[in-house]
Write a protein that binds this DNA or RNA. Structure first.
Lengths: 345, 345
DNA sequence: ATCGTTACCGTAATCGATTTCGGAACCCAA
DNA sequence: TTGGGTTCCGAAATCGATTACGGTAACGAT
């Protein structure tokens, strides 16, 4: 079945496309009779406006591009979900791409999105992204960009992030409140601001409670995965005076540490308390359930999408756009793994 | 910065857009001198063809729509990942939407995708989808559709699915091979073919090994979540003769069962062996690690996308398209939860 | 001198919808 | 009959790129 066009309707009624268009769009300057006739044949021919023609005319794609490092990651799934909800409500669509944490792929998909046609971009930078020229290029084309999660200060664009510093501070303070004094930290690689902020939040919490920052209680997780947690916890436990609590940069690392601790016969939380970051679903499924700091992924997606849509509309209206930096708090999800030895949480 | 058009180049060189287009597209009938001049000013003006104009002319969007019930689900993240990989390699993009397992939303996003402009659709049906009119409509518009995971036989379209029957059969047989004879099954809701096939595979394996199918060993999980597993396992263990193995329809349910079993003081796998379905990452993180049947999500995405892209190209070439039904095997990932009591796996 | 060929480029139609402008037809009043 | 005012609709430009077609010039061949 061929797609019906304005001309098909026009020809079958022996009128012009202009009249047909007026009828369909509810403009004045048209008689009730012809209007009804047009609407009838439009329905009969199952007419629908051709998307490309409309967009070419309107100079609007009704599409926002999204770049995430990794779709599979539960946090990003959450964010994407939030994005989709907001933009669909606004009549936009989501073009989804992933960078695989590669700067090269990030620039490539960014260019592809621009060439394919988008009204704006939502992006979480890859870990090894250092320059943001590929994004300033977008802005030069008058395309708004909103960053989320992993952002660059070099780009004059709005952003939505988790308060990693506060989250780490709260996580560490939570352990302190549970009576722990020898608190170790398994950090991530330097580079992404997230892991740095989490380490700084950890250090600040120690300082705020006059606890020493011991170098032997610091470990670094290269790939932020399960096995890194195993290795770090094993190292910690081999110390003459092992820590009585561990704050891990991510849940995967925390659960790795948990595995190692159980393997070594340490009780959690009696001997060692444990808390992670991100609040993956798996935290509730392991034994004991692992405490974590919940990142508001869905909300991050919603806010970022909202900022972007607003910028798109503002530019179209000619209104000046003000850059906005949203910081959302991470919230404590205390579970058994960080309960105080006496029992209460 | 305004976007440069063919006319901008043409005017600055005092030639026509036709000549400019020829130069840029490498057509003959053009002198080396003008060609170079055009290329030079095109680069100077940072010319890029306008996506909508090209697509309107070419009648091709270079976009495929994707509808999944739930982006957050790890299986679908996997599938999406596979889809993205294939279509990007083919120069296409992915428009992602989700149905939230609602038939109404599924028809809505399907219509939106059609109106927005796609060259084809990849879809996993929602659980409560019974009719496929919204998809046959697409086909009437000459848009190819490929189904994956949850498919309908009513739609004359290619499909890519996991062999749930074989997977369930293998899972059950695995338990039998480990010396189990009283094997219970926690099923999902009737409706989706997947859960039905898994139940049938389970029943077939019992029959193949001359084991009775006991009604008291059958439970149904309404929402296929953790708590359903807890409830079912608790019921099973209250039986005069509880089962010595449980095959759960999903990993979430299996891990729920695991939680309950540990709560009840039953040892896994010594007292009760356990196996799930889907092979989520969490299977390796719980204690003991839970056996599961791995669904090839990434591969499903790849194959489905491949079929779709091939259909798109075939239609454009006028070649007839043959419907293809791909069934990919689920593979056993045996872990400690289903080890035989004697110790070996 | 005439014709045919080649090289090069412009004209204009096309994709489909939108929108401005102008004009025909009609009615009523003068 | 003429003028002013509606009402309704067609012509044509526009968005930007693509492409079939036609035309001009230059050149060599007969």
């Amino acid at each position: 079945m061929k797609r019906a066009t304005l001309r098909d309707i026009a020809q079958s009624l022996h009128i012009t496309v202009a009249t047909v268009s007026r009828a369909l769009k509810g403009y004045p300057d048209i008689s009730a009779a012809t209007k009804e006739a047009v609407l009838a044949t439009a329905k009969a021919l199952r007419y629908e406006p051709h998307p490309m023609a409309v967009k070419l005319r309107q100079q609007a794609y009704k599409v926002v591009g999204v770049v995430v490092p990794d779709i599979i990651h539960p946090f990003f799934s959450d964010v994407i979900s939030g994005i989709v909800e907001v933009v669909e409500a606004e009549g936009y669509h989501v073009l989804l791409t992933q960078s695989n944490e590669s700067f090269e792929k990030e620039t490539r998909v960014t260019r592809m999105l621009r060439e394919t046609g988008i009204d704006g971009l939502l992006i979480c930078l890859a870990n090894d992204t250092t320059t943001v020229e590929h994004l300033t290029t977008l802005q030069e084309y008058d395309l708004p960009v909103v960053q989320f999660d992993k952002v660059s200060a070099d780009l004059p664009a709005s952003s939505v992030v988790t308060d990693d510093f506060q989250g780490a501070f709260d996580a560490t303070e939570h352990l302190i409140r549970q009576g722990r004094t020898r608190i170790a930290h398994i950090s991530g690689v330097e580079g992404p601001a997230n892991t740095r902020q989490r380490r700084l939040g950890y250090e600040a919490a120690l300082a705020a409670h006059s606890l020493p920052l011991l170098p032997e209680y610091q470990a670094t997780s290269k790939h932020v995965v399960h096995t890194d947690g195993v290795a770090a916890a094993t190292t910690f436990m081999a110390l003459p005076q092992p820590p009585d609590a561990i704050f891990a940069v991510t849940d995967a690392v925390a659960i790795g540490a948990l595995t190692a601790l159980k393997q070594l016969g340490r009780r959690v939380p009696e001997d060692v308390a444990l808390i992670g970051f991100s609040n993956w679903a798996v935290c509730e499924l392991v034994e004991p359930p692992v405490s974590s700091m919940a990142q508001p992924g869905f909300e991050i997606g919603r806010r970022a999408a909202d900022l972007l849509v607003r910028e798109i509309k503002a530019r179209r209206a000619g209104t000046p756009v003000e850059v906005e930096h949203v910081v959302l708090p991470a919230t404590l999800r205390a579970r058994a793994s960080s309960a105080s030895p006496s029992g209460e949480r």
